[in-house]
Design a protein around this nucleic acid. Structure first.
Length: 284
DNA sequence: AGCCCGTCCTGAGGGC
DNA sequence: TGCCCTCAGGACGGGC
């Protein structure tokens, strides 16, 4: 599933590949995947890509003349830019292709989304920052303004377990299931620990862990478990060295104990029962 | 406010 | 071989 490192990787790729390209046609193969909230005269055709921004897991492609395309990939979305030859070798379009943008140069941008949860939404650029989803996002962990004090304040805003808080995009923008589990293992914090029981030391460890886990994954081009591909159609390799995600029953890389899998906040949650001690174990 | 569930969806994988 | 069932889960809306 595309989280911050995957979306950042796609952003970097799209910035290389489609900035300056002019849209010549838009094919919508699954209507729910594409919607316009812009005036009817504001269509993408005839407009050039000016740049790509990322807000948490959301990508915003800005065009000239106050038009932007917001892209949320959710679970299985892909944005792959390909020349006709590259599209042939990648076998695109395929049965999961929902939208195709064709540029005047012949380059095409494929929005693939097996599960159809993702969305492309056309909006005026001047309304992007006031979009309800974007406006309510918490701080971005890769932003310089993200500090241990800010993490402390954000976690205090939510009274739930720490795993649920990390998944909440209002607390932090961009962390999803994979990196929440990896960061909690790295910081040696049990996923069910209530946010108000976290010590200052634990929060500082968690802060460092979030940053290092995300940075490492960006360096490795993100995580490909099933669907994720970069803008060039390549896989990410982070999961080759993941410590807990997808490793239930395998030995902990720190102590050898079998990695456990439980359900927290409705998501499959992986942790080391020895390295990540349960909360309030002394009061049980 | 927080929790849980349903909704949106397809395809992989387990069981028989 | 094949079919049915469960599971995977990001974000959101509704009910309690």
């Amino acid at each position: 599933m595309p989280e911050l490192p995957e979306v950042a990787t796609i952003r970097a790729g799209l910035t290389r590949l489609i900035v300056g390209e002019e849209v010549s046609s838009v094919e919508v193969l699954w209507p729910k995947s594409y919607q316009s909230r812009a005036p009817t005269d504001q269509e993408l055709v005839g407009h050039k890509v000016q740049g790509i921004r990322r807000f948490g897991k959301l990508l915003v492609i800005d065009f000239d003349s106050n038009i932007s395309l917001m892209a949320h990939l959710r679970m299985t979305g892909q944005l792959i830019a390909a020349s006709p030859q590259q599209a042939d070798s990648l076998a695109l379009p395929d049965r999961s292709t929902r939208v195709i943008l064709t540029f005047a140069s012949g380059l095409r941008l494929f929005f693939n989304d097996q599960r159809k949860f993702g969305r492309l939404v056309v909006v005026p650029t001047d309304r992007v920052s006031s979009d309800p989803f974007i406006a309510s996002l918490g701080p971005d962990p890769t932003d310089e303004a993200f500090t241990p004090a800010k993490l402390t304040a954000r976690l205090a805003s939510r009274r739930t377990n720490v795993k649920g808080a990390l998944l909440d995009q209002h607390v932090l923008a961009g962390v999803g299931n994979i990196y929440a589990d990896e960061a909690l293992w790295t910081a040696m914090i049990h996923p069910l620990t209530p946010t108000d029981e976290l010590t200052g030391t634990q929060i500082r460890r968690l802060y460092s862990a979030i940053k290092s886990v995300l940075t490492t994954s960006i360096d490795r081009g993100g995580s490909t478990s099933r669907n994720y591909l970069s803008a060039e159609g390549t896989r990410g390799t982070y999961l080759d060295q993941a410590c807990v995600y997808g490793r239930a029953g395998q030995p902990c890389r720190r102590c050898g104990t079998q990695i456990a899998k439980i359900k927290v906040a409705g998501r499959g949650t992986h942790y080391c029962p020895r390295c990540q001690k349960p909360p309030s174990c002394h009061s049980l």
